[in-house]
């Protein structure tokens, strides 16, 4: 465990720009792609990046909580999503893996282009918010990351109907809020509680993902 904490500490000392670029790329990836086989691995990467950014302000052992809870949540979500896909496949509906193998090239550009334009607006708004409404506290580099995660999370929540995608948006939003709070005031209790919160929200989203895929019984 000590080696892992030491590794997190060393990684968190990397230059901030590559970390921020990677974080923006991960957020953009989740916004642009709505296929859980792609978004959930990206979400794990994003949790690692958020953990590294947090380790710049708080103890690396606390940042490890974020990594572990993020990995567990993503794992639970992937199990639920796989089970939901199995149920859809039994009904002969399209599932995630098929959509990767047989990409509908005619409809993809229109969908992705629309989301890309919206994403550009969202990122511009996040950048504007960082400069116009900077958060208090000294860790300025975290502010942009916080605004990007909150804005992209809200964008996903507002634009998708499926429980899994909304859930991913909520988890991104929570990560953004945590990053913002740590930037202004690091607190052990709050960090632990947000880790627990992410886990329970993740379980609830996994349950709702399964419910989302069930066939219509009435109404």
């Amino acid at each position: 465990m000590n080696d892992v904490i030491a590794l997190i500490e060393q990684l968190s000392r990397l230059a901030i720009t590559p970390l921020l670029i990677s974080l923006v790329a991960s957020a953009a990836g989740i916004v642009l792609m709505r296929n859980w086989r792609l978004t959930l691995p990206i979400l794990i990467v994003q949790y690692v990046l958020v953990g590294l950014l947090m380790a710049r302000s708080i103890q690396p052992s606390l940042a490890l909580i974020k990594l572990i809870s993020g990995a567990l949540v993503s794992f639970a979500l992937s199990i639920a999503a796989q089970r939901a896909d199995d149920m859809r496949a039994q009904r002969g509906e399209s599932v995630a893996v098929e959509r990767i193998r047989k990409v509908a090239w005619r409809s993809v550009p229109a969908q992705v282009l629309l989301r890309a334009v919206a994403l550009l607006l969202v990122l511009t708004a996040a950048f504007g918010a960082t400069t116009r409404f900077p958060l208090p506290g000294s860790a300025r580099e975290l502010h942009f990351a916080c605004y990007v995660l909150i804005a992209c999370g809200l964008f996903i929540i507002a634009t998708t109907p499926e429980a899994l995608n909304i859930g991913v948006g909520i988890l991104m939003f929570i990560s953004g809020v945590e990053l913002g709070y740590i930037a202004v005031s690091a607190n052990l209790g709050i960090s632990v509680m947000i880790g627990l919160l992410s886990l329970i929200v993740g379980i609830a989203i996994a349950y709702l993902t399964l419910s989302d895929s069930e066939p219509i019984l009435s109404g």
């Binding site: 109907p161 429980a163 909304i166 859930g167 609830a204 709702l208 419910s211 989302d212 895929s213 069930e214 066939p215 219509i216 019984l217 009435s218 109404g219």
Partner: peptide, 10 residues
């Protein structure tokens, strides 16, 4: 009760 019924919970 139905496929769209996760909206309230979400």
């Amino acid at each position: 009760v139905g496929e769209r019924s996760t909206h309230g919970a979400m």
